[in-house]
C-alpha cells in the first residue's frame, strides 16, 4: 500500500478566496494519519504511541485548514467539520451519499468544496 495519496481539490462559490484565490489544487497526504486528525507532526511509522486511521475526508478538512487555507479559518471549519452552507462533493457525488467525513480517501480522488453563502 502506498504511503501517500494524491488528491485533486477544487473550491467554488467564493471559498477559493480563502485559498489564495486558486480554484484548483493538487495535494499529497499520508494514507495513514493520526486518529485525532493532528496534521502537524510527521507520523513516525515505528511509533506505536499514536493511534492511527486511514486518511478520510474529516482528516482532509483539517489538513486543508492547516496547510492550504490562507485566512479566516472560521469561514471554512466549524465543530470539526466544514461550516454549514459548504457543500462537499466526492468524485462528483454529494458527500452525504458517501459517508461524509468518514469516507476513506483513495489515490486520485477529486474533492470539491462549494460555498452556498456568497451572493444571491
Amino acid at each position: 500500500m502506498a504511503t501517500t495519496i494524491s488528491l485533486r481539490i477544487e473550491f467554488g462559490g467564493g471559498l477559493e478566496l480563502l485559498f489564495s484565490n486558486e480554484r484548483r489544487h493538487t495535494i499529497t497526504i499520508p494514507s495513514v494519519v493520526p486518529s485525532d486528525n493532528n496534521t502537524k507532526p510527521p507520523l513516525d511509522p515505528s511509533s506505536n504511541e499514536v493511534e492511527t486511521k486511514l486518511a478520510d475526508v474529516e482528516y482532509l478538512i483539517y489538513h486543508l485548514r492547516d496547510h492550504l487555507l490562507q485566512e479566516r479559518a472560521e469561514l471554512f471549519m466549524e465543530n470539526n467539520t466544514v461550516r454549514p452552507g459548504i457543500l462537499v462533493l466526492i468524485n462528483d457525488t454529494d458527500w452525504e451519499l458517501e459517508g461524509e467525513g468518514e469516507y476513506v480517501l483513495k489515490d486520485n480522488d477529486e474533492i470539491v468544496f462549494i460555498s452556498t453563502l456568497h451572493g444571491g
Binding site: 457543500l87 452556498t116 456568497h118
Partner: peptide, 18 residues
C-alpha cells in the same frame, strides 16, 4: 443546496464574491 448543485453540474458561470 439544489440551486448550487444545479449550477455546478450544469457548469453555469456565476460570480460569488461578497
Amino acid at each position: 443546496k439544489e440551486i448550487v448543485m444545479y449550477a455546478y453540474f450544469k457548469k453555469l458561470d456565476y460570480f460569488s464574491t461578497e
